[in-house]
Write a protein that binds this DNA or RNA. Structure first.
Length: 485
RNA sequence: GGUGCCGUAGCCAAGUGGUUAGGCAGCGGUCUGCAAAACCGCGAACGUUGGUUCGAGUCCAAUCGGCACCUCCA
């Protein structure tokens, strides 16, 4: 099925066509590995995952998905320095080699990141490559050199800056973000670094080495420029190296539109002569309980914080699918429990499809249902509408009335849908829970006996005891089911 | 100052000018010893004020409120 996507370049929904046959090349701005990822970060990665899955399943494309790991920047350098209180014993021993420290520090959070996204239902096998910025330094130096040679960058005190004014004579600077150069307001964070820039809007390509910080040897136009790459440059060099230019889709959070992505466009074109990509896709921000997430408001959560609160990562995934990626998502604890119930309702339905005792004569047009759902997903990843279609279906059909053929087709469909949503089990319900404590099972059995002999008072007492041990008991006709509370 | 986004029932969240989005919660029912779960059924909304139109949640204007970005934040 043809996919349509909102393109931040045209600010319109456009029909998507890959540049090379059936293959989609997609690059996602990945994490800066200086801390555990928070749920706002997670939304960006879940959005990219949804996109690549829809491209595979609905669009029938093969997808080459690349997501970078930013393992060198101000924050990672600072956090990994000797004496940093962010250093954890699990990262190993610090040495007097700043680059080694940086590497140990960032690898720790890189592992944590992979672990986190896996819990969220992202399959790392879908990601073709997770390039680390530090492993592409020669390519970044090469790009810097090209831009300088083409006359769109200058060296100042060993750092290299992109000359925006010069570039504007040749091409538009402001393709994603309309910039009013007359009313350009210098940012507050400007003086965080002593930039020796000719113009306020120039941005750094390569930063000169500071004492006790990691650096790479670099000589440019006879000038010694030992140092490290600037942030924007990393992506430009890696995406060209791994995907080739131009590729099909570039994703990221909406805050990266400017300056990060705008600068990427300028760099790639000024250095390589090519636009990076044809589609820019951005996800909106996330709120927590109606407010912007911030540490001061005490509503700043990493995925791990939420897991510690006994929240299922898949409920987070599912709840985010209930809003369109292009609108602000309001994360609330209420919405998580709401999402869990909704998700489980579909899960129950899937289980019942495998139940041969529930079979009837009704034929259902599964093809049409499939089409109804896929059309929504193909229309700019409209997951809320796709889910609405699915619920509307479940509301009109009970498995017991469906014939075997329809049920089989539905299992196939749910398998396909789960290749996108990835929040269900497509298999018969397994009643056995090996992890149940024996004492709870014994209590439940005693309760069953009491119940069958109609001693309900005793049965209620046992139920009390079971729930005080953290389990709930559900009666079936002549047995019981236990569930963790 | 500039550039954008958003105000839809108790909560979340779709709505491309013309008969129902959907989920959760709530209410009623079936089933249960009572529950739980499941299933069946039910209601309720478009920030405010004008305008365009036969008809506006949808288009236009104004207004109020919230938010984001404006040089290394998803």
């Amino acid at each position: 099925m043809k996919i349509s996507l909102y393109n931040s370049l045209s600010k319109k929904i456009e029909s998507f066509n890959p540049l090379l046959g059936n293959q989609v090349r997609m690059y996602s701005c990945g994490p800066t590995v200086y801390n555990y990822a928070h749920i706002g970060n997670m939304r960006a990665f879940l959005f990219a995952d949804l996109l690549q899955r829809v491209l595979r399943v609905v669009g029938n494309y093969s997808v080459r998905w690349v997501m970078n790991i930013t393992n060198i920047d101000d924050k990672t350098i600072k956090s990994s320095k000797i004496g940093s209180d962010l250093w954890k014993p699990e990262m190993g021993e610090q040495t007097d080699n700043p680059l080694q420290n940086l590497s140990k520090f960032t690898l720790f959070y890189e592992d944590a990141f992979i672990e986190d996204i896996t819990k969220l239902g992202i399959n790392p096998k879908h990601i073709e490559s997770l390039p680390r910025a530090t492993e592409f330094i020669p390519q970044m130096q090469d790009l810097t050199r090209r831009i300088v040679e083409n006359g769109y960058a200058y060296i100042s005190d060993g750092s290299v800056y992109f000359n925006v004014a010069e570039w504007r004579k040749k091409d538009v600077y402001g393709k994603l973000f309309k910039i009013d150069f007359e009313n350009f307001r210098p940012g507050v964070r400007m003086d965080a670094d002593q930039y020796q820039r000719e113009d306020i809007s120039d941005f750094v390509l390569w930063k000169v080495a500071k004492p006790n910080e990691p650096f790479w040897k670099f000589e440019l136009s006879g000038v010694k420029c030992d140092g490290r790459p600037g942030w924007h440059l990393e992506c430009s060099a890696m995406e060209r190296e791994l995907l080739g230019l131009p590729f099909d889709i570039h994703t990221g959070g909406i805050d990266l539109k400017f300056p990060h992505h705008e600068d990427e466009i300028a760099q790639s074109k000024a250095g390589y002569g090519n636009d990076p990509t044809t589609f820019w896709c951005h996800n909106e921000f996330l709120f927590v309980e109606g407010e912007k997430m911030s540490k001061s408001k005490n509503n700043f959560y990493t995925l791990r914080d939420l897991l510690d609160k006994n929240i299922d990562a898949l409920d987070i995934r599912f709840s985010m699918l209930s809003a369109h990626y292009g609108s602000v998502f309001n994360f609330t604890f209420n919405s998580i429990s709401s999402a869990r119930k909704a998700r489980m309702r579909i899960q129950e339905f899937i289980y019942s499809l495998f139940d041969d005792n529930k079979t009837g004569k009704r034929k259902y047009d599964v093809e049409k249902l499939r089409n109804d759902i896929f059309v929504e997903l193909a229309n700019d990843l409209h997951s809320p509408k796709a889910l609405a279609q699915l619920f509307a279906f479940i509301n009109t059909v009970s498995t017991g009335e469906l014939d075997l053929n329809s049920k089989t087709k539905l299992i196939v469909l749910f398998t396909e849908l789960n290749d996108i949503f990835s929040v269900w089990e497509i298999k018969p319900e397994t009643k056995e829970d090996i992890s149940l404590p024996e004492e709870v099972v014994i209590l439940a059995q005693k309760r069953l006996e009491a119940r069958l002999s109609k001693d309900f008072k005793l049965a209620d007492e046992f139920r009390q005891q079971i729930s005080s041990k953290g389990y709930s008991v559900k009666d079936t006709k002549d047995s019981f089911e236990l569930e963790k509370l």
